[in-house]
Design a protein around this nucleic acid. Sequence first.
DNA 1: CCATCATTGCAACAAGTCGTTGCAATGGCA
DNA 2: TGCCATTGCAACGACTTGTTGCAATGATGG
Lengths: 195, 195
Amino acid sequence: MVAAVLDETLRALEREGLAGLKVEAVAAAAGVNKTSVYRRWPTRNALAAAAIAEAQAHLTAPPETGTLEGDLRAVLRAVGDFLTSTAGRATLRVALGGGADELEGAVRGALEARAKAGARAVFAAAVARGEGVRVRDAEAVVFGLVGAALHRALLERRAIDARWVAGAVRRALYGVVASRGEAAGAAGGARSVGS
Amino acid sequence: MVAAVLDETLRALEREGLAGLKVEAVAAAAGVNKTSVYRRWPTRNALAAAAIAEAQAHLTAPPETGTLEGDLRAVLRAVGDFLTSTAGRATLRVALGGGADELEGAVRGALEARAKAGARAVFAAAVARGEGVRVRDAEAVVFGLVGAALHRALLERRAIDARWVAGAVRRALYGVVASRGEAAGAAGGARSVGS
DNA sequence: CCATCATTGCAACAAGTCGTTGCAATGGCA
DNA sequence: TGCCATTGCAACGACTTGTTGCAATGATGG
């Protein structure tokens, strides 16, 4: 019963957002009486928080690949999977809410902490391997990539596939300005790195 | 009366989103009877659509600066201003909605078309000037920058100031990998370009 | 100055939603 | 069997939503 309700809650959050979450509708969709839902989760926020916590618990960090470009691709693919799942879209809808709500802030904080930790880990490993990057750029690069994925998944509504991920990571690392004389070379060379 | 209601509608959309929009509350906040609102805009979506259309009508394209980096900074600053305004946040909340709604799709389409047009114009001008970029990358770069701004404004909730804009554009154009031997030089040199 | 017309305010309404409560039914466990 | 926690069910009061009829207002034109 708990699992079914939390699952339907995620589905409802994805569709309607936190403000539009209807406990009674969730209960009905889960084949349960609304009284049971109210008894276990007294408020709308408690129900939403439980559903989101459940969803986050199933997340797992991508494995190391041995190169910064590979690691970033893996991270961005994981972000893409998250952004195209019901759990992820529900989480994001709550995180992107108005701002006054306490739950929204907590979800935002959790997402940001996760991204920040991943960014530092991946860049620290790259620096240790002697790749020409600075840990100083870690957050900015990863936040930028996650932002690009947000734009693609939530605004453009296009698929976050391997091809797009590879291009985004390549642009983030090497830019798009042809540096003196080695025009397409950098892009082509970079494309052979990573998973 | 019309202006006051549409203004309050934007404020309400920013706070509560499309699903949480309460016509009666908007009317009260605008110092108007709800009947008058219902007569002019029969449905919730009609009211929201009118408010968003009003908001978009006041937008203006940033001026050309003479360099790609300067143009991109101007565009990103404009995006930042939009994302920190009531009108912008309201628009985005609607655009990022569940997906089934017709209004949401229309708003997404309008935002994307605007970004796409800006991207092509800026990159086409840069290519014409002989800067080492390809128009092919225009959309990807601008969408990536807009996405980064989304992440910063809506998830991190940090200010989109000149410093951050300059860094984001520099990274987008030149990347973060120190290309053979000119480690910090590329960043420092790039910083002197543009507005 | 008056007649006309559109706009707005107001009060009441049916229908529906929200969260609570009291009580009965169910089912696992000793 | 007796006990306990969990769930279903029906009813409730309070509130919200969108509609309607009617009166007040105010601008325009003769």
